[in-house]
């Protein structure tokens, strides 16, 4: 289903959900939950957004049933730890590649995905200052290295 332009800012979180459907359904579930909560704040009144959000809610309810025996979905504190660990694993992989001078598309994507998953952590409450800083750094690094590679420059 096409994403209404008003909800454009959740498109990357929805894409991350899709990419993790098989690899890690818990990550996919929380990415969609974040997209749902954010989407409702952005626009839940226009017919096109309501239609989109109702579909997304249907999908979330189905996933919740399918994952009903998974503690990461049934217990918020376990889910929080799962998403935070996954985000930091992505961050550390990208950071290690960066510090070793290995610049490539995969590490750019890891930095960016880490920043998106740190957004997703907001479904559990306010982000810690450390996670706010990690998110800012990961997003900046992803953009910076992407631009360097595009312009044929070596990142510093």
């Amino acid at each position: 289903m096409a994403l209404p332009p008003q909800l454009k800012s959740i498109q990357h979180h929805l894409r991350t959900a899709q990419e993790h459907e098989k690899r890690d359904p818990v990550v996919a579930y929380y990415c969609r939950l974040y997209a749902m909560q954010t989407g409702m704040k952005l626009d839940s009144k226009s017919p096109e957004c309501r239609k989109f959000l109702v579909k997304l809610m249907d999908q979330l309810e189905t996933m919740k049933k399918e994952l009903s025996d998974n503690e990461s979905v049934t217990q918020e504190v376990v889910g929080n730890a799962h998403i935070e660990n996954y985000a930091l694993k992505m961050f550390l992989y990208a950071d290690n590649e960066d510090r070793s001078g290995r610049f490539h598309k995969n590490m750019i994507k890891s930095f960016y995905t880490a920043s998106l998953l740190l957004d997703v952590l907001c479904v559990f409450g306010e982000l810690s200052e450390e996670n706010v800083q990690h998110r800012k750094y990961a997003r900046w690094k992803a953009t910076y290295i992407h631009n360097c590679l595009k312009n044929g420059e070596t990142p510093l």
Binding site: L33, M40, S44, R50, V54, M57, E61, T74, G79
Partner: peptide, 27 residues
């Protein structure tokens, strides 16, 4: 007509909020 449209939109929005709360309640 406008107010009917608004009420429908508001009811559907409430329904979504209710479903979201239910989804989160079970966590």
């Amino acid at each position: 007509m406008g107010s009917v449209g608004t009420s429908v939109a508001s009811a559907e929005q409430d329904e979504l909020s209710h479903r979201l709360a239910k989804l989160r309640d079970q966590m």
